Amino acid sequence: MMTKPTFGTHPFLLGFDELERLVERTARSSDGYPPYNIEQTGEAGFRITLAVAGFSMEDLSITLEDAQLVVRGRARDEGERIWLHRGIAARQFQRAFVLADGVEVTGATMKNGLLHIDLQRSIPENVVKSIRIETAQD
């Protein structure tokens, strides 16, 4: 039985094996919390919106780690409350997004329990470079 080549081992995609490992690690770390949206805000703009009800700005951190945008939330200890019903989740979380080369974070805002992270992709210039072919010497 022939196996299908994976993204990192495809013969036309050289040097992308690290990207494949990054995507796999990101997919494994996701448990669905907190919920999020990704929208296109322009030709080269994006916005990630995470529902972070119950978190203050001090409870949240956004970092760039290699090619990943990582959002972490750490809920504060609320003391000795006695809950009769607790339907609003406020557990700690880590959500990671893999960013392509040229995608930069342009800002982050929080409003009405939603954390908005704005991204902008720079349009790369087309580069054409000729490679000289030399005669091999044995």
Rank of each mutant, 00 (worst) to 15 (best):
R95G: 00
I82P: 03
T26K: 10
T3A: 10
K111F: 01
L13I: 09
P35G: 08
L99D: 00
R47K: 10
E104C: 00
L50N: 05
A67H: 11
D66I: 01
Q92L: 02
R86E: 12
G107L: 05
E39L: 13
E65L: 04
G54Y: 01
V98Q: 02
Q137P: 04
I131C: 08
L99I: 03
V98N: 02
Q94N: 03
L119C: 03
W83M: 08
T106D: 04
Q94C: 03
L64N: 06
V105G: 06
D31Q: 13
D66T: 11
A89R: 15
R47H: 08
Q137M: 10
S61I: 06
D138F: 10
F55P: 07
V70I: 14
L119H: 00
E20V: 04
V103T: 02
M110I: 07
R132S: 11
W83N: 03
L115P: 01
I38V: 15
M2C: 06
T49L: 13
L19H: 00
M2Q: 09
F16G: 01
A51P: 03
R28D: 14
G73N: 03
A27H: 12
R81L: 04
D59F: 10
F12M: 13
A53F: 11
A90D: 05
H10A: 11
R47G: 07
R72H: 14
Y33F: 13
A100L: 07
L50Q: 09
R21A: 14
